[in-house]
Write a protein that binds this DNA or RNA. Structure first.
Lengths: 193, 193
DNA sequence: TAACGAGTAGACAGATCGGTCTACTTCTAA
DNA sequence: TTAGAAGTAGACCGATCTGTCTACTCGTTA
């Protein structure tokens, strides 16, 4: 059974993700989720606290989905292929677990909260670090030198973020496949050294 | 002499860039620029029109700066090195022409305006396309096969966007140098084929 | 059965939002 | 010299914002 608290989080996330946080008011969230205002302020002390809860929710949701996709793949370079194939599915709305693509929630939110010292921005940063570590465990299966792994990790991470950004801002739905091509070139080049 | 119109645009940009558009009100812009409200609405019919003017202003400002930096470099791979060196200067606040780094204005604004069909989002897309074409003219000096140039262009563009995003969200001030390393590897690999 | 936690609907408060308007000043060009 | 464009300060409007509060309804459990 879904609690009112979870209902508020998932509904608020939908609105925040598609419209931006400042563009969505408390009353719109209440109407969209069919919950009374008193109930919202029973579970959360402020809108900011609700925002932070949606960040946590999306963090888990996205991370779990991606980890599942990567674990399904064979080891080695196939893991990196799987990463970009997963992104490709995301960009093209073929993932049930995620909402229709509207960029990376954490990048979007970071843009709205320019002050990099506030807690909301820090949560966005933490999400990116967490996903980067997930990618690192995939690259470790390639058994390369430490420095090579580090370079590849940076490259894959940069290509991934670039793909998400361009898929959103430019509407380039093939961004993940383009990124995959470059990533594989770099990996094959590194393996033969 | 700076007109009131230009003053409003530059001041509004500063606030929008550091705080986000929805987080900045008309009155804050007026106070920060020392201009009367009547004057603002004499030059712009609405806040949205002012937003669009700041996008145009930043587009020109950023593009001109980057083009200047690239044109100063020798041809070939040095042009791509110059691109990432320029980004590195930007991320680390060594560029007088640009404000202290707070991510890419166009990526930030896209995050706030999820609806990809509105004019504001379209302007962001147009900026990215314009810069991509600038990079293309640099890669053309390498005299590679058309397909190779296309692949490299996508790679460099993705790495650039990834670097900007990670520099902002993660606060990774070395993102440009990491991206440069990957880009040069890809270029040298392509040249020897 | 009595108490209480979680829920509802919605009025209300105080602040702020974008935008309009009046009344006045200053500068410039016909 | 005078008409008009561009500027100032700031009151004002209606809408909307976050958040509080009252009054009431359920279930569960001690």
């Amino acid at each position: 059974m879904e609690s009112k608290r979870n209902l508020l989080i998932t509904r608020a996330f939908e609105l925040f993700y598609t419209k931006g946080i400042h563009a969505v008011g408390i009353n719109e969230i209440l109407q969209y989720s069919g919950v009374a205002k008193k109930t919202l302020y029973h579970h959360f002390t402020s809108k900011d606290e609700l925002v932070i809860a949606t960040l946590k929710y999306r963090d888990d949701c996205f991370y779990d989905w991606l980890a599942r996709r990567l674990n399904q793949a064979d080891g080695g370079a196939a893991r990196i292929e799987a990463l970009f194939d997963a992104l490709d599915d995301w960009f093209n709305d073929r993932v049930d677990e995620l909402q229709p693509f509207s960029g990376c929630f954490f990048i979007n939110v970071s843009g709205e909260y320019g002050n990099t010292t506030c807690q909301i921005h820090k949560q966005c940063k933490a999400h990116k670090s967490r996903v980067k570590m997930l990618i690192k465990t995939q690259l470790d299966t390639l058994d390369l030198h430490e420095n090579t792994t580090k370079l590849l990790l940076d490259a894959v991470h940069l290509l991934k973020e670039g793909a998400i950004t361009l898929a959103h801002v430019q509407g380039d739905k093939e961004a993940a496949l383009k990124a995959k091509a470059s990533a594989l070139l770099l990996i094959h080049n590194s393996c033969s050294v």
